[in-house]
Design a protein around this nucleic acid. Sequence first.
DNA 1: TTTAAAATCGAACTAGTGTTAGAAAAAATG
DNA 2: CATTTTTTCTAACACTAGTTCGATTTTAAA
Lengths: 211, 211
Amino acid sequence: MTTEQSKSDISRARILDAAAKTFRQKGYAATTLIEIARAADMQAGSLYYHFGSKDELLEEVLDIGMRRVHEAVEESQEHLPPGSSHRDRIRAAVEAHLTTLLKLDDYTSANIRIFGQIPEDVRRRHIKLRDAYAELWRRILAKAQKSRALRSDIDLGLVRMLLMGALNWSVEWYQPGRTSIQTMADHMCLMLFSGIGIDETARSSEDETIA
Amino acid sequence: MTTEQSKSDISRARILDAAAKTFRQKGYAATTLIEIARAADMQAGSLYYHFGSKDELLEEVLDIGMRRVHEAVEESQEHLPPGSSHRDRIRAAVEAHLTTLLKLDDYTSANIRIFGQIPEDVRRRHIKLRDAYAELWRRILAKAQKSRALRSDIDLGLVRMLLMGALNWSVEWYQPGRTSIQTMADHMCLMLFSGIGIDETARSSEDETIA
DNA sequence: TTTAAAATCGAACTAGTGTTAGAAAAAATG
DNA sequence: CATTTTTTCTAACACTAGTTCGATTTTAAA
């Protein structure tokens, strides 16, 4: 028990890394403890010294992934230059979300990919973190709307789901090198705020009603 | 072998329905043949009279799901009123995609949800249908861009992925009754074409460059 | 170096899976 | 009704998974 981390902590981290990576690649049910153990340079039985069950391991991977993206987006809001527009704020949040999801974080991408296939009780215990993250986005968007940076005649909850969908779905197709995360964020924010249509009738976008 | 469907065909369809439903709910690996059989009012062994393996069953579910959404979107383009704008065309495609995905079609939603977790060889054999569907969307969007209904300074492939993501992700959160598919399509198209931002600097959207 | 604790191994167990094949039942045919 | 074919059942098989636990090794303390 020195100032550094014990051997147990190192192994634990190695196992979690291996689990996150394998879960992300193969999904939850298809991932075997033998695979995780091999990726962590261990025997399957040894995992039980650190984790009580496969579900416990899953739960920790999910939690870490959600906390990381939450913190990343939260930080992106705190480190904004003073006087940033709401568009800048949202743009920063989008980029933070994408970066965490796509850049070297198997935890968050595993979370996003396998959330729909996890056992009921694990989901129940994890859902709080999900809700908290959703609430963060809700606040960001609502503030923008209140400040008249976003139209008021729209269903902001629906917009949030469409936005998160566009971002989250990238775990299914994103390949490093083909498109930069900045380009993705640029396109996403352009669509969100201005759209990519060329108005043939030449009326301003505020004229259209939706609800 | 009458003009109607044989008993075998009926059972086959019942099994496929049960499989699609269960795959969509639980994912591929977590779904057991016992569950599928129970949902189809049969014993697990009896499935093998109709299908050679679990993978074969999966493959057919995937193919049916992809064909259905492909046909739905294709039809939406053929049944457009003459003189429809490109925005109308895309709006029709969006609605067709969402309707197939969310309204009583376990096949398409199963496809979208579990595609990331299927065995390698099944994916390889299924990928053609996926590509064909992507190509359909590529054509629709490219035509709109060529007709100057969409900006030319954007990465249309990226826009397509973001759009499909926003739509496909709805299988993870959509609940019938809370939001209508029309409202979803409205919001999606409004975002895509006009955006939902209120331009504080009051310059037109065409002034912004992205690439 | 000795000794106790921490960490891992290795082999076994149980449960549940996809799959098979012969028996049984249902349907169709003559 | 008799008989053949189609369809389903039943029971078993082979295999793999998650899990357990005593033996063994590694690490740290005295």
